[in-house]
Design a binder for these strands. Structure first.
Lengths: 194, 194
DNA sequence: AATTTTTAAATGGTCATTTAAAAAATAGAC
DNA sequence: GTCTATTTTTTAAATGACCATTTAAAAATT
C-alpha cells in the first residue's frame, strides 16, 4: 500500500509550490528557500526529495507535460471526426485546467531555458513531436497535401504565440474565450481549402 | 564631433557582446565576466559604461527593438497598397538582419524576463503596441470589422510563435523561407474573406 | 596637466548544497 | 495497547562557490 505515501505527497506539494514560486518570481531568480517557504517546508527537504534544483525544475515541467498529454487524450476519446479531433487538440491546449496565468509563466520559462539544459530540451522535443503528430494525422483528412505542412506549422505557432502573449498579461485568463478564438482561427484557415 | 566617439564604440561593442553571450549561455546564467570576455574587455568596464547588469540588458533589448522598428519603417516607405504594407510588417519581422539564431534567443529571454522587470515590461508594451497599430491599420482595408481583431491577433501570435520555435532550433535559420511561409499564412487567412 | 578609460583586486552578499543531529513515523516484540 | 529499535523525514547551521559591484590606481588620450 502506501509505502511511499509521504514521498508522493511531498513531491506533489513541492511541485505545486515550484509552479507558484516560479510564476511569482521568475525561474532565473527564484531560490530554493522561496519555493520551500511556498510549500511550508525547508530548502533542505527539496534536496532530500529531488536531489537538486535542476531536477526539481525538470520534475515540474514533466508534470505540466503530463497534464497536457492527459487533456489531449481525454478529449480525443470522445471526438469522432477529423475536424472534431483537430479541435480537441486546440481545446486541450486551452483547457480550464491548463490555460492559467501560473502555468503560462512556467511554459515561458521552460521555453527560455530549454536551449540551455539537455533534460529540458529533451522534454520539449517529445512534447512537440506528440502535438505535431496529432495535428498531422487530423489535417491529412482536412487539407490538401501541398498546404498541410504550412497549416500545421501555422497552427502550432499560433498556439505557442497565444501562450506567450498570455504570460505577459497579469489579468486573469479566459480559457473559454481562447478556445473560441482558436477554433475561429483554425476554421478560417481550413475554409480557404474547401 | 567625436566627443563621445569611444563611448559610442564601446556601447556598441558591449551590446553586441551581450547578444552573443546571452545566446550562448542564457540570460539567467551569463555573467558580466563572460560578456566582457566576449567583447575583449573587463567586467568593470561594463559597469563604467552601463552602470549595472540590468541596465546593460535593457540597452541590449532597446537595440533590438530599434532594429525592428527601422526594418518596418524601411519597408513601409516603398509599399503602396494595404496588402503590400501588411506584408511589409511580416517581411520586417523576418528580415535577414533580424531573424537570426542569436536574436531569436534574446527575444525569448526578453519575453521570459519582461514580467519580472518593469523596464523590460515597458519596452515590450511599446513594441507590441506599435506592431498592433500597423496591423490594425492595414487590416482595416482588407477584412470585415467582425473578423479583424481575430485575424490581427492570430497573425501576431503566429509571428511570436515562429520566433519561439526558431529559438529552440540550433540549425541556422532561413529568413527567406520564413517570409514566404508568413505570406502564405497571411494570405490563407485573408482569402476566406474575399 | 587634466581628463577619460581601463582593469586587477577587494568587498560583500547570495545561494545551492551538505552535514549532522533531531523529530516523527513505523515496525516488531511482548 | 505499550514499549524499544529502526527507518524515514525534517531542518538549522555550516560550507563553499560564485558573482555583481566598488575601489583605487594605472594607462591612455586629449
Amino acid at each position: 500500500m502506501g509505502r511511499t505515501r509521504i514521498r508522493d505527497i511531498r513531491h506533489e506539494e513541492l511541485i505545486n509550490a515550484t509552479i507558484t514560486a516560479v510564476h511569482k518570481r521568475g525561474y532565473a531568480v527564484v531560490t530554493m528557500a522561496e519555493i520551500a517557504a511556498e510549500a511550508g517546508a525547508s530548502a533542505a527537504s527539496i534536496n532530500y526529495y529531488f536531489g537538486s534544483k535542476e531536477k526539481l525544475m525538470e520534475a515540474t515541467m514533466r508534470r505540466l507535460l503530463t497534464l497536457l498529454k492527459q487533456a489531449m487524450l481525454e478529449r480525443y476519446s470522445t471526438a469522432k471526426t477529423p475536424h472534431d479531433r483537430l479541435m480537441a487538440v486546440l481545446d486541450a491546449n486551452f483547457s480550464d485546467r491548463l490555460f492559467t496565468n501560473e502555468q503560462c509563466s512556467i511554459w515561458i520559462q521552460f521555453w527560455a531555458n530549454a536551449p540551455y539544459a539537455e533534460s529540458l530540451q529533451r522534454l520539449h522535443r517529445i512534447n512537440r513531436a506528440r502535438v505535431n503528430a496529432h495535428f498531422r494525422a487530423e489535417l491529412r483528412a482536412l487539407v490538401s497535401d501541398d498546404r498541410r505542412e504550412t497549416l500545421r506549422e501555422a497552427l502550432q505557432c499560433y498556439m505557442d504565440g497565444v501562450w506567450l502573449e498570455a504570460a505577459q498579461s497579469s489579468a486573469p485568463l479566459n480559457p473559454a474565450q481562447a478556445r473560441k478564438e482558436a477554433r475561429e482561427v483554425a476554421d478560417l484557415m481550413l475554409k480557404s481549402e474547401s
